[in-house]
Amino acid sequence: MTTTGTRGRLSVQDWLEAGFSLLAEAGRPALTIDRLCAQLGVTKGSFYWHFTGMAGYRSALIEAWAQQRGRELPIHRAGPDHPPRERLSMMTEALLHPRHWKLERAMREWARTDPAVAASVTAGDRRARKAVRQAFLDLGFEAAEADLRAQLTFAAGMGFLQMANNSAHPMPVAQRERVLDFMTRP
């Protein structure tokens, strides 16, 4: 399940990926040293080699998620050379990708009780809404209309995320594209 560091030992990234996996499958309560060690098949000594305790581990996990979220969502990387409609489609696809949506939901749930996670989620949401708004501006909508459509599109995406339950594919591609067609219609 894991890849190891250059010397055959677990890396910090291995520990973070194990945490993401536990979060996605069982939520924040699953983040315990015992569960992490069981997931990786190692002793607690390995955990403490990399982290001073769970507080430090959680901080590293939150930071890694924020960085990963920015890299994974193609709309954050897609420049103006991508057509605006394509950027919106890329964002929707990334949000509802099976690898992403369970972890996204778990992080949002965790954010309800942890200010550091809430700040990370809020910052990521701000970047996403800005990118969505820009796509609508690039489609030729006036600023006020772009703001409204961006808010509605973002809210719809969050709603679809919550409705996903445990489906491997929470929303078929054709349906996602129909929603985007509706949202981008003049």
Score class of each variant (00 low, 15 high):
18 A>V: 08
68 Q>E: 14
103 L>S: 01
78 A>M: 12
177 E>A: 13
86 E>V: 11
135 A>F: 05
136 F>A: 09
57 Y>M: 00
103 L>M: 02
130 K>W: 09
76 H>D: 07
72 E>H: 10
112 R>C: 11
152 L>A: 12
80 P>V: 14
82 H>I: 14
94 A>Y: 05
70 G>Y: 05
59 S>N: 13
85 R>Y: 08
132 V>R: 01
109 E>W: 02
54 M>C: 00
102 K>Y: 04
70 G>D: 08
77 R>Y: 04
46 S>T: 15
42 V>T: 11
104 E>T: 14
92 T>H: 06
163 M>D: 10
52 T>V: 13
105 R>Y: 06
36 L>T: 06
26 A>L: 08
183 M>N: 02
28 R>A: 09
21 S>V: 08
12 V>S: 09
68 Q>I: 00
154 F>M: 02
165 N>G: 14
3 T>V: 12
26 A>C: 08
120 S>E: 07
161 L>R: 00
171 M>G: 03
130 K>L: 15
81 D>F: 09
83 P>V: 08
165 N>Q: 15
103 L>E: 00
133 R>C: 09
31 L>W: 04
114 D>V: 07
30 A>K: 04
23 L>P: 06
144 A>V: 11
127 R>L: 14
30 A>F: 09
157 G>P: 07
60 A>L: 02
61 L>N: 06
173 V>P: 11
54 M>R: 09
45 G>C: 00
26 A>I: 07
99 R>A: 11
9 R>C: 06
163 M>G: 08
132 V>L: 03
42 V>Q: 03
104 E>C: 00
48 Y>P: 01
183 M>I: 04
112 R>Q: 15
141 F>W: 10
20 F>Y: 12
177 E>M: 12
2 T>L: 10
168 A>I: 07
186 P>H: 13
103 L>Q: 03
144 A>N: 10
115 P>T: 06
144 A>Q: 12
134 Q>S: 14
102 K>R: 15
38 A>T: 13
186 P>K: 12
121 V>G: 01
32 T>W: 03
17 E>M: 08
75 I>M: 10
66 A>F: 02
121 V>Q: 05
34 D>T: 11
75 I>T: 07
4 T>E: 12
22 L>P: 00
42 V>S: 02
40 L>A: 08
94 A>F: 02
25 E>H: 10
8 G>K: 03
85 R>E: 11
185 R>V: 09
122 T>P: 04
63 E>S: 13
89 S>I: 08
53 G>W: 03
25 E>W: 01
154 F>S: 05
178 R>L: 15
47 F>V: 05
53 G>S: 01
97 H>Q: 04
26 A>R: 15
31 L>N: 03
185 R>L: 15
35 R>S: 13
127 R>E: 11
178 R>T: 12
180 L>Y: 07
141 F>M: 13
172 P>E: 15
41 G>W: 03
97 H>E: 09
32 T>V: 04
166 N>T: 09
39 Q>V: 02
132 V>Q: 03
182 F>K: 10
52 T>R: 14
162 Q>M: 09
41 G>T: 01
